[in-house]
Structure formats: structure tokens, C-alpha cells
Design a protein around this nucleic acid. Structure first.
Lengths: 224, 224
DNA sequence: ACCTGAACACCGTTCAAGT
DNA sequence: ACCTGAACACCGTTCAAGT
């Protein structure tokens, strides 16, 4: 008996960890972190509530796997660059842009230190620091400094990106914030910071921080 | 008619924002972030569920106020130091120690960029950078770099502190983690990082990162 | 004004029952 | 083995009713 042609309609694919993680990323990207619940996920996948627990251990595992998917794409690219310093710049910027596109990743990276996505970033940084000739505990220290700077920045930017996805809304939001800030505290340092706030560029500021870090490392290497 | 003596038993003080925030800190310190719910809080205060909403706007406000209480104690101390660099070291270490004592603060600082505790830290850093002679957008950049490094570190350490409050448990945990890590990835960089992991000191590593940023900032000042 | 506690509209996870 | 969906044990917030 002849089997049906290749375009036999397979109305629902079997559930798998991969399909679940992709569905989670879709929901997170479309409607944000709050929107991902077991209920929205299983309805998106047209399946029963308990079904996902055959493939992921729970919500924590799912969020970690989703973030790892996004981060993997970045760290794989970063390995291309031959110069360690520019590889570190590229890696940092890649993570910044991934968080900009997927704000939930920023919050997730700060949540759990030993999740796969975080280990992946630590390793990428470590490889490049090795290329710079930093070794032993100096490498751990430098790696931790850059990684924690990236995670802290990612969490802060993510909160901003969540609130204001378009530019003009963002500008208005920051101006209102700066005004409220000055009203609360008249100190000159606060006033100047508020003035910088509404037209500063997150991306430029983030990269400036990476340069500060790289300068700091370079100084300390030359001390040895 | 004589009023009763001063030791008239007032069995329950009136509710206030301050009392609510203090009760929240007690619960957070004693049993961790998961333990703070409107139900545990109101039962701790022997009051009705809705009562707290007369004094705080909700859970987010409450957590932000609790973190601000802890951070305020640190930033007030940090202003004492006359030398800006050592004031920045002292401020950083103070926040590290506050997070060590109150791990929930680490998670909270990464959650929301414009909460009072975060603004307080930004301002303290800004004042000291002004003392170092850093001005304009260089000050924003340097301030953001150090602040985001502190926030990222705080979130990572907090997760560790949450898991392992005593030293031997911690050491065992890190050794198991290092072993799992090596098993998953045999790369030499990972192997070396794992070897550093189980006997590294979070506090020393954090302070090493502060030095890297201070070196980087100093280098860039001398460029101008 | 302040407080109460029931009601509302949700959560993540488990598990007996089905296929 | 994989999936279903009801049940369980929770959440934060609101609000009519009390004082």
C-alpha cells in the first residue's frame, strides 16, 4: 500500500524540549516576562498543563534554557575575531544587543549565577582573556569584573527596554524621570546627572564602560 | 481626671509605612525572598490583608523601600572618607557586605533601575567621581560602569549567599559545581576556572574588580 | 481615616486517568 | 512513554463593610 505524499498534513508535531523552549521565547519576545505562564505556554502549544513537565523540570529550567538559546547565538559569533580585545568588545556588544532585542534575557542573566547562559559568557570571556595573556587568579578576577559589569548593565537596560520600546516614548519617560529626580534632591551632582539622563545613549555608555574595564586590565597586566 | 501612667499597655501600635517596611525586612532576612508574601506580612503584623495597602502601594514599593533602608545605612557611612578613591572602595565594600547580610537586596537592586536604593548608590558614586575630577559625560560613563559592576556582582553573590549560608556547605557546593562543570566541558579554560572556583573568595574577587574599574577610570582621566 | 477579611482573578506543580 | 486536565496549594490586590 502506497504511503501518502510528503504533504500529508501533520496537524500537531510531537512535543519536545526544543519546541517548548521556542514557544516560550516567542511569548517572552511578544508580550514580555509577565506573559509567560504555564497556562499561556500550554495553550500556545495546544497541549495539557502537565505535558511540559515531561520535557522541562519547571519554569526556572525553561527560562534558563530560553536565555541560553539567545546567548548561544552571540557567543558563537564572538569566537570569530582574532584580536582578543576586539573579541571582548564584540562579545559585550553582542550581549547588549541581544538584551535590547529580548529584554527578558537581561533579567534572567542576573537571576541565577550558574545557569548555562551565564557559564557560556564566562567561558567566552575567559578564552579571550587567555588570549590577552591574563592567567591564574588574575584571569578569574578580570573575568568576573567584566561578566558582572555586563550582567549588571543588562539588568538595568532590560528594565528600560521593557518600559519603552519606542524612542519618543523613551525620551519623554526619561525627561519626566529627570524632573522628578531633581525635585527630590537639589544636589548639584544629581542635577548634572539628570541633565545627562534624557539624551544619553545606553549603547554608547555601555561601550564606554567596556573600555574603562579594558584599560583597567591593561594597566594591571603591565604591572606584573 | 488623671490620665493613666506612661506604661499604659498599648497592645498593638498603629500601622505605619515604617513598621511595615521593618516587618518586611525581618521576614526577608529570616526566611528569604520567597517567604515575604502579603499573607506572612499581615500575619506577622497581626492585621488584615488589605491594611498594608493604606501605607504602601504594593509589593514592588515595599521591596524597594526595604532595600532603600539597607542601602541608606551604607551610603551615609561612605560620605565620611575624605579621599575619593578610598571612599569609592568603602562604598563598594559596604554594599557588598550589606548584600552578604541581606541577600534579597542583591536581587532587588538588579530588578528596577530607578528605585530609591539605586539612585542613592548612583549619587554617592557621582559625588566621589566629582571629587576625582571626572566631569560631564565621562562622569556618567564612569559612574554607570562602577554602579553596574556593583549591581551585577551583588545579584550574582546574592544567589550564592542565598544557597549557602555557612562556609562548609558552600565549599562542598562549589566543588560539586566545579566537577559538574568540567564534566560538561573539557576545555582547558573551563578546567582552570573550575579549579579557581571552589577556593576563591567572593569578597576579594569583588574588590579586585573595583580596582580594575578604578585603574581604568584613572587611565582615562590622565588621557584628557 | 484606618482596618478587616472575604472575594476575585490569577499562579506553578502534581497526579490519577487515559492513549 | 507521553499526554490530559482536574485538583491542590498557593499568590497579590480589591473592596464592601465595619469602627
Amino acid at each position: 500500500m502506497a504511503t501518502p505524499t510528503a504533504r500529508t498534513p501533520r496537524r500537531s508535531d510531537a512535543l519536545s524540549r526544543e519546541r517548548i523552549v521556542h514557544a516560550a521565547i516567542e511569548i517572552l519576545d511578544a508580550d514580555g516576562e509577565h506573559a509567560l505562564t504555564v497556562r499561556t505556554l500550554t495553550s500556545h502549544l495546544s497541549t495539557g498543563r502537565g505535558a511540559i513537565y515531561h520535557h522541562v523540570s519547571g519554569m526556572e529550567d525553561l527560562l534558563a534554557a530560553a536565555a541560553d538559546d539567545v546567548v548561544r547565538a552571540v557567543t558563537e559569533h564572538a569566537a570569530d575575531d582574532a584580536d582578543p580585545s576586539s573579541a571582548l568588545r564584540g562579545l559585550s556588544l553582542g550581549i547588549f544587543e541581544a538584551v535590547d532585542a529580548h529584554p527578558w534575557v537581561g533579567a534572567q542573566l542576573a537571576r541565577e549565577p550558574f545557569q548555562p547562559a551565564v557559564l557560556r559568557i564566562w567561558k567566552s570571556i575567559g578564552v579571550q582573556l587567555q588570549g590577552l595573556g591574563v592567567a591564574g587568579s588574575a584571569r578569574s578576577d578580570a573575568g568576573a569584573a567584566l561578566a558582572n559589569y555586563i550582567f549588571g548593565s543588562a539588568a538595568q537596560f532590560a528594565a528600560g527596554a521593557r518600559r519603552t520600546r519606542d524612542g519618543t516614548e523613551r525620551h519623554r519617560y526619561l525627561e519626566a524621570l529627570a524632573a522628578a529626580w531633581i525635585e527630590q534632591d537639589e544636589d548639584q551632582v544629581v542635577r548634572e546627572a539628570a541633565a545627562e539622563l534624557s539624551d544619553h545613549d545606553d549603547r554608547e555608555q555601555f561601550l564606554a564602560g567596556v573600555e574603562i574595564f579594558l584599560s583597567g586590565i591593561a594597566t594591571r597586566i603591565s604591572w606584573r
